[in-house]
Amino acid sequence: MSYYDPKDLRKFGNITDWSEELGTKFFDYYGKVFEEGALSAREKSLIALAVAHTEMCPYCIDAYTKDGLQRGITKEEMMEAVHVGAAIKSGASLVHGVMMMNKVNKLDG
């Protein structure tokens, strides 16, 4: 049994039960963020999918995979978005290699 239960995603809205004001403000904000704007709702869905993976959030991955399918986004587009997230995540690790190089150069250069 995992700590994560897929059915818990259905209960996300219940967050407002214990703090209605903050919960409602969050969901209003969330809804507004994903509306069509300078970016299309479709583009936002792909960004959300990429971030869902870098955050390794199972609920978000379920939600934005389904959202993408509903929007007609193809699996190839979804996988490319996931790679964008993965590339930034691995790049973020690798770019710290410069710090290591700086330190080596300082200590042993």
Partner: peptide
């Protein structure tokens, strides 16, 4: 007529028509 190919609901009709 578009109907989803799997276990999910159709997205916005206007957006799908555009695509």
């Amino acid at each position: 007529v578009y109907n989803p190919s799997g276990a999910f609901l159709p997205g916005d009709q206007e957006g799908l028509e555009k695509d």
